[in-house]
Amino acid sequence: MTTIRNGMPATDLGPTGWQKPWSGPNGGSCVEAKRLADGRVALRQSTDPAGPALVFDADEIRAFIDGAKAGKADGLLSG
C-alpha cells in the first residue's frame, strides 16, 4: 500500500474522485481537489494531473477555506 504524503504523484491517489471546486473562466486550468478516505484532502494542478499532490488534514483545509472566505488570502491577488 502506498503511503499518502505531501508531494507524492497525484496519479498514485487514483484517477477518480477529483473535482474542480474552484474552476472559473480560465479555460479549465485550475486546482482539483479529492477527499481521501481518511478525511484528508489532496490538491493537484489540473494541467499537470501526474504532478505532485498537496495533502492537507481536515483542520488545515478547513482553516484555509475559512480564511479565504474571510478575505485573508486577498493579498495574494494582484491589483
Score class of each variant (00 low, 15 high):
Ala37Asn: 07
Ile4Asp: 02
Cys30Pro: 05
Val31Arg: 00
Arg35Trp: 11
Asp59Asn: 14
Arg35Phe: 13
Thr11Pro: 09
Gln45Trp: 15
Ser23Gln: 12
Lys20Ile: 13
Gly7Gln: 00
Arg44Asn: 03
Met8Cys: 08
Leu43Gln: 01
Gly7Ser: 01
Asp59Tyr: 06
Ala42Ile: 04
Gly71Trp: 04
Ala10Arg: 01
Asp74Cys: 13
Ala70Thr: 08
Ala58Val: 15
Ala42Ser: 06
Pro25Met: 12
Cys30Gln: 03
Asp12Ser: 11
Gly28Lys: 01
Ala42Val: 06
Ala53His: 00
Ala73Pro: 13
Pro21Gly: 06
Ala68Ser: 15
Ala68Tyr: 10
Leu76Val: 11
Asp38Tyr: 01
Thr47Pro: 11
Gly79Arg: 04
Asp57Leu: 02
Gly51Lys: 00
Ala58Lys: 04
Asp48His: 13
Lys69Phe: 12
Gly75Phe: 13
Val31Asn: 02
Lys20Phe: 14
Leu54Tyr: 00
Met8Asn: 04
Asp38Glu: 03
Ala50Trp: 04
Gly67Gln: 01
Ser78Phe: 14
Gly27Cys: 01
Leu76Met: 12
Trp18Cys: 11
Ala42Phe: 03
Thr47Ala: 13
Gly39Thr: 07
Arg5Met: 06
Trp18His: 06
Val55Ala: 01
Ala68Lys: 07
Ala73Thr: 14
Asp59Pro: 08
Gly7Glu: 00
Glu32Ser: 03
Pro9Asn: 03
Lys20Ser: 11
Ala63His: 05
Glu60Lys: 01
Asp74Ala: 12
Arg62Pro: 13
Gly75His: 13
Ala73Ser: 15
Thr11Arg: 07
Pro15Ser: 13
Ser78Asp: 13
Arg44Leu: 05
Leu54Trp: 00
Arg5Glu: 12
Asp12Ile: 08
Trp18Tyr: 09
Gly28Leu: 07
Leu54Phe: 02
Gly14Leu: 04
Ser29Glu: 14
Gln19Ser: 14
Phe64Pro: 08
Asn26Gln: 10
Lys72His: 13
